[in-house]
Design a protein around this nucleic acid. Sequence first.
RNA 1: UGGGGUAUAGCCAAGUUGGUAAGGCAACGGGUUUUGAUCCCGUCAUUCGUAGGUUCGAGUCCUGCUACCCCAGCCA
Length: 551
Amino acid sequence: MAERDRRATNFIRQIIDKDLAAGIHTNIVTRFPPEPNGFLHIGHAKSICLNFGIAQDYHGSCNLRFDDTNPAKENIDYVNAIKKDVSWLGFTWHNEARYSSDYFDLLYGFALELIEKGLAYVDFSEQEAVREMRGTLKQPGTNSPYRDTNVAENLIHFEKMRQGDYKEGQCSLRAKIDMASNFMCMRDPIIYRVRFVHHHQTGDKWCIYPMYDFTHCISDAIEGITHSLCTLEFQDNRRLYDWVIENISIECVPRQYEFSRLNLEYTVLSKRRLIQLVDENHVQGWDDPRMPTIAGLRRRGYTPDSIVEFCKRIGVTKVDNMVEMSMLEACIREELNDSAPRRMAVLDPIKIIIENYPDDKVELLQAPNHPNKPEMGTREVPFTRELFIEAEDFKEAANKKFKRLVIGKEVRLRNAYFIKAERFDQDAHGNVTCVYCTFDDSTLGNDPQDGRKAKGVIHWVSATKGLKAKVCLYDRLFTVPNPGAQDDFSQSINPESLIEKQAVVEPALMLGEQGQGFQFERVGYFSIDGSSSQNSLVFNRTVGLRDSWQN
RNA sequence: UGGGGUAUAGCCAAGUUGGUAAGGCAACGGGUUUUGAUCCCGUCAUUCGUAGGUUCGAGUCCUGCUACCCCAGCCA
């Protein structure tokens, strides 16, 4: 526990520690505020672990709040998917899920307050004009001709906006701040726009919708959020966040702190690009096992714990970062190495015939489910005269670094006997079609008395008792470490990100639930796909075994 | 001289009254092994973007410089 706490430390927790010590707060309240316009991804997991993790460790609470101020892009399916993913990761939000739209009435009231204070005005400038008047990064903007409209008139116009008397784009409500500010977001930001769009929560009640900068800070204040954590690109927006809170009548003063978003090598983590991958059918959906989404990782065979562990390991800072895939992979390997039952599966089968083994005999061998954990028990593996082994596990001849089957040499069949390769058949293309072997019946469960050593250990499946299965081998979705930096990232999609194998697996694999993880010995970790059934088994490779063998 | 941020190993990241560079991932040696896995043992920053300064002593303080990221949606 002590070690966990030390690992979890980061600059935000240190700020919280100080706030607590100074008596600024006695109870910590955070929130996770996704926009329901897409599925959650591993980058969101970082934010989820941060916000919910703080709530847990400080005995505070964390709200789930859908930031649903742009109904044109959002929908209820995403709301449901997000709830499912947060829950699956193992987190529980405080009370019911919230929506920014829950506060539309209050928000409207605060907008009125701003107008009454002379701090907001209805601007009828065209969108293009608004942009021109905003100035540039190095030049100040100019005031809108509508900036000095009196309060009474603004009140009338805003009311008409709400009633639907103005068209989309005809006008907007702007905060009156400073057109010369170095912070672009302070140059009279638009806080309400007209949108005749149906909203998944509020239906057709509204035709004006508040903007993020106006909504988020007030929502935080309403909910009593103490520490509002977001990503680095909102650093400038903090000035507006604070301005709004200072200029409306509200008690709570939440503080915003920014941390750097996660970047993962060989994938993309921006909502826009993930939507593109789905819409353009580069993947089969949001839960495609190649996707860095929570749903995709789940289907790939990642567990909640492994994702949470990953988030702990990467930490929270303000440094721009690019995390290696190996970091994520190490987390799931570590867990599955410990928990996954071992099985045997041959992905690229060639037949071997054990000539001195009886034709009709079937031996049910007991094989441990885990080599280092006898408490996990055993399962039966049928052994027969004809077996399949991995094509790459046989060579006619090889040097001694090749710890597999070679003509005239012996290997151990995992959990079974020593066999010796005698001769083989090949087809017209030179592909090995069958290897003829002999076995030593004294080698089950022990090495030969005469001290002979096997070249190595290979896995196998009975040719007559094994089951056919589809095995999906997933690789990185992109061929370059930072595809997001490319103009057209679809050009660098890895054509071999999915390879389907017609494999043969041991019968024990018939029993298993969807999502369950196994280690196929010497091959990798696999989980049962959602589409799998007893009649047609489908496995997804979660991650390969660590492989230090150099060819 | 727009503003806001960030620089510690290949990657992530500790380092907080200045006291002599944690840990993880990766990599590389060696041992164990009926998985080329796991496990075990060992190696991996004389140096903290850079140039100066203060100090007995600087990753931590001061000054200059450099590099990279973010900001000109009626997106979030």
